[in-house]
Nucleic acid binder design. Structure first.
Lengths: 347, 347
DNA sequence: ATTATATGGGAAAACATTTTCCTGTCAACG
DNA sequence: CGTTGACAGGAAAATGTTTTCCCATATAAT
């Protein structure tokens, strides 16, 4: 691989001149420009981005921490992110943490060592850990579809409580009164959606039966189990709200195996509107999230933060990691995108 | 962020000593070791991997070129790759090319500029382009589930023809004689699987009807269209082999809408065994590919190539990009993993 | 004519590491 | 007692850029 020195020699100019021609950072006479371009072309020169990163203190790389890439929801978020970052000439490094906090810590360190310009979190963290992270570094961070409230860390996603509220209200409008819930209680997501369920029930004057609340991790298999549990509790709901499509698909499967007909005997409503909700039979009625758009918006926001920060560093001239400036830019951004109800065949 | 100089000053030692302690590259007295460790701890020092990359000529970063991360198949491959690379302390940069060749070229350049240590291709390329790439650089490259034969570029995947053969043979064993095919003819994958179909048919003495061959891009929606086309061709097959699960799901959907019962009136067999084949009703009989394992194996192979290469560079002492060495390591590795037939409910 | 200003271009510092080369100390051995 | 070798540790070169600083030349202004 040729380097800038070889180009300079070949073109008969100084290193500085080559750099200037490549970046347009200072005018260069047409004569020399041509000589440089020719040399670049002939030797197929590409500037070494590592050396650039070192001196510019900018890697044009962002890190995305994801619980599991092979999960459809996260994969879609990722694809949205990638679309925007690619346009802005950023690379994305994925950090698959397998819903494992230990990995997470390791990855945070790794990303700091690699000096990523920013991070998007798709994986839920404890608030303490985020604050810890904030204290450690000034690297911009945004939460995408991780509804945690930490001052100084922007969030983009939907109104989780409102969306769950809408889902349950829809069931109620259709005449259901005995409504079960399958949720996960170890994530903020699950808890907020449960909150929406509770509000909808009480706003419509319905009481919540303890035995209708079932919690399980988010997957088809666990959804099946949860439904089994729910059905074995004696009284039977006429509808159940599952806080994710995967859970809903598993739960429907279980109902089916128990000889229940959907939606005649029991209704289901899911959440997310990932691909499977359209291919499952009957097609799943669910809450649609603009998943890819969330990813895009998160990426846009992050890049904006990065560029703003690098500008401010440039103007002030030194690293202000003391955090005094940080405070002024705490504009508490929360980008809330619109969800919607898609009626299919399970209610 | 503290740098090595600050640690050296704090510990009262030279920069070299700090480096030696961090990397264990040369013995250091316990006395100084302790001083360095303490300084590192107190200042929370992390070596700047950019500077390391620059001098070591090793980024510990690999690029993965993927047609579409949000596609379940590719997302699973990616997750397999990530698992192995994380263990070996490599980062993964994703390059989503949206099945777009222009993007692809841009990304290749980007990755060379960033000096990734190696590349895994999940996206089909023309053989010419690959050879072009080989000529341009010595960066290791492996094809995962992209069945192209280019000397010097290893491949990991399954026996595509054999797997397709098995799928069709299974239909034939079940008594089917009129077997349709839905495939994609613009990818090597589609063409090989079609080849398997043809061999199976002729080996069993069955003739192939032109009107049973339908081709379309790989997605649920196109699968539906293809099936419509196939059904409108007059004579009706009793079974159809779809070269991907997505196509199969779409095709089944169409059959269903036309009032055909699966598997009573018409049988379907898919390919890949991605998640949807298990949640669709009736559950799709398909060819199982060890997708995640393919990703893992590809990553292992790539890392092996990278380390072997960096060793050889080290011992010879200069960059041998002339390619003469390359030839000797052309051991034509093709790692073929086992596929299997999973019988569900659509045959 | 002389000073001031603008402008193109080169030399060298800076970025944060690793590693080579060198120096000084100490033990071993003749 | 002197030479050799081992060994710990420091100084400095090297990695490939960008950018600052400086110089020379040319043009404009006084």
């Amino acid at each position: 691989m040729p380097n800038i020195k070889m180009i300079a020699r070949k073109a008969g100019v100084s290193i500085s001149t080559v750099s200037r021609v490549m970046n347009g950072s200072k005018p260069v006479s047409p004569e020399l420009q041509k000589r440089v371009y020719d040399a670049v072309q002939q030797m197929n020169y590409k500037p070494n981005s590592i050396a650039r990163s070192l001196i510019l203190k900018k890697t044009n790389l962002i890190g995305v921490v994801v619980p599991d890439v092979s999960n459809s929801f996260h994969a879609q978020l990722l694809s949205g992110i990638e679309e925007i970052t690619a346009q802005a000439d950023y690379g994305v490094m994925i950090c698959n943490v397998y819903r494992n906090m230990k990995q997470q810590q390791k990855y945070f360190n790794l990303m700091l060592e690699r000096h990523v310009d920013g991070i998007i979190l798709l994986h839920e963290n404890t608030i303490e850990e985020l604050k810890e992270f904030q204290k450690m570094t000034t690297t911009p961070l945004v939460l995408a579809s991780v509804p945690l409230e930490v001052s100084g860390i922007p969030f983009v996603g939907i109104d989780e409580i409102g969306a769950a509220y809408d889902a349950v209200s829809h069931l109620i409008e259709k005449g259901h009164k005995e409504i079960g819930l399958i949720y996960g209680d170890c994530t903020a997501l699950g808890i907020l959606r449960k909150e929406g369920y509770e509000r909808a029930m009480s706003d419509h004057g319905l009481s919540i039966k303890k035995e209708y609340l079932t919690q399980c991790p988010c997957s088809v298999a666990y959804g099946y189990q949860a439904m089994e549990q729910l059905l074995s509790s004696g009284s039977q709901p006429t509808a159940v709200f599952c806080v994710s499509d995967e859970m809903a698909v598993g739960a429907m499967d279980c109902a089916y195996d128990k000889g229940l007909r959907v939606p005649e005997d029991i209704s289901f409503i899911g959440f997310d509107d990932i691909e499977i909700s359209q291919v499952v039979r009957p097609r799943l009625t669910t809450i649609h999230q603009p998943i890819k758009e969330i990813g895009k918006e998160a990426a846009r926001l992050l890049i904006e933060m990065i560029e703003k920060k690098s500008r401010s560093v440039k103007t002030t001239g030194f690293d202000r990691s003391s955090g005094c400036e940080q405070a002024s830019s705490k504009e508490e951004s929360r980008i809330i995108l619109k969800h919607s109800l898609v009626e299919r065949e399970t209610v």
